[in-house]
Amino acid sequence: MIDRIYAHMQAMQVLSKSQEATADNLANINTPGFKGNKMFYRMFKENIDGREVIKSVPMQRINLNQGVLEPTGNEFDLGINGDGFFMVEQDGQNMLTRDGRFHLDPDGFLVNGSGAKVMGNSGEIDLSDYFMAQGDGEMPKLEIAKDGTISLNDRPIDKLRMVNVEDSSQLQRKGSAYFTVEDESMLTDDNTGTIMQGYFEKGNVEPLAEMVDMMQNTKMFESQQRALKTSDELLSRVSTQLGKY
């Protein structure tokens, strides 16, 4: 009976974790470059008081499926079609992102909405010449090729640093749009993604599928709650009856 109660409690903990991941996905439906959370479960054997017990442990994985590329016409908006991440630097830390809604800061550096500087092969991408061309009355022509090469008025400036991760399970989520890896040796410049200028990638969350998951989690959680209550009542009756002898 105790084992049954423990199993119900464990199932409720697993379902609670799954519901948290689903809620986070739904909260970020409109977050550009967001990659949804996927829950899966690993079975572990554990020895407790000489008995072998099988435990189900919830694990979280990042869903790296491609999101829809939305056209904007903004020359600073960039989307990745395929694998890979942009690298940005904020507060001295390198982070990875799929959110390519960029702009120029007052100093002419290419940055994202949080002010993190976009990294190129030569470091921080400096496009201050863009402002100088405007000051000269010239209409600057900014072109970013599919391989990430940045050209201003047909003059190559730098190349976006696009990276991939050898083992995606090493990705650690930092907020809704950023990822980091503990060991940067896991990063590689070998990726198949191409840059789409004038586009940004929408989040890859499917609202209908997430709503279905949320309803199923709720039903299963309530079912486990009822089963736990029944097991507890049965245990209480058994204890009361035994106490009479």
Score class of each variant (00 low, 15 high):
residue 211 M to Q: 00
residue 99 D to L: 00
residue 9 M to A: 15
residue 17 K to T: 15
residue 64 L to P: 06
residue 91 D to P: 12
residue 205 V to N: 02
residue 171 L to M: 11
residue 15 L to Q: 05
residue 120 G to D: 01
residue 48 I to E: 12
residue 214 M to L: 15
residue 47 N to M: 12
residue 133 A to T: 04
residue 147 D to A: 09
residue 204 N to H: 09
residue 192 T to E: 07
residue 157 I to M: 06
residue 176 S to T: 12
residue 48 I to Y: 13
residue 141 K to D: 13
residue 163 V to F: 00
residue 219 K to N: 15
residue 60 Q to F: 02
residue 221 F to G: 00
residue 185 S to H: 01
residue 152 L to D: 05
residue 28 N to K: 07
residue 177 A to I: 14
residue 168 S to R: 10
residue 183 D to F: 07
residue 113 G to Q: 14
residue 195 I to Q: 00
residue 67 G to D: 05
residue 80 I to F: 12
residue 53 V to W: 02
residue 232 D to Y: 00
residue 29 I to W: 04
residue 9 M to I: 15
residue 160 L to E: 00
residue 54 I to M: 13
residue 190 D to Q: 14
residue 75 E to L: 07
residue 67 G to A: 07
residue 29 I to A: 01
residue 110 L to R: 04
residue 100 G to T: 07
residue 10 Q to G: 04
residue 207 P to Y: 08
residue 58 P to N: 05
residue 59 M to N: 11
residue 71 P to Y: 01
residue 221 F to I: 07
residue 117 K to Q: 14
residue 138 E to R: 14
residue 9 M to C: 12
residue 54 I to L: 10
residue 83 D to I: 02
residue 133 A to S: 05
residue 122 S to K: 15
residue 30 N to L: 11
residue 240 T to R: 14
residue 140 P to K: 08
residue 76 F to H: 06
residue 74 N to E: 07
residue 130 Y to C: 01
residue 56 S to R: 12
residue 242 L to R: 04
residue 178 Y to W: 11
residue 25 N to C: 01
residue 146 K to R: 14
residue 175 G to R: 11
residue 146 K to N: 09
residue 235 L to Q: 06
residue 151 S to I: 00
residue 230 T to G: 03
residue 175 G to M: 10
residue 125 I to C: 00
residue 190 D to L: 10
residue 96 L to P: 06
residue 196 M to S: 03
residue 230 T to Q: 09
residue 225 Q to Y: 00
residue 30 N to M: 11
residue 25 N to D: 03
residue 173 R to C: 10
residue 163 V to P: 05
residue 60 Q to A: 11
residue 120 G to I: 03
residue 198 G to F: 04
residue 227 A to E: 09
residue 2 I to A: 07
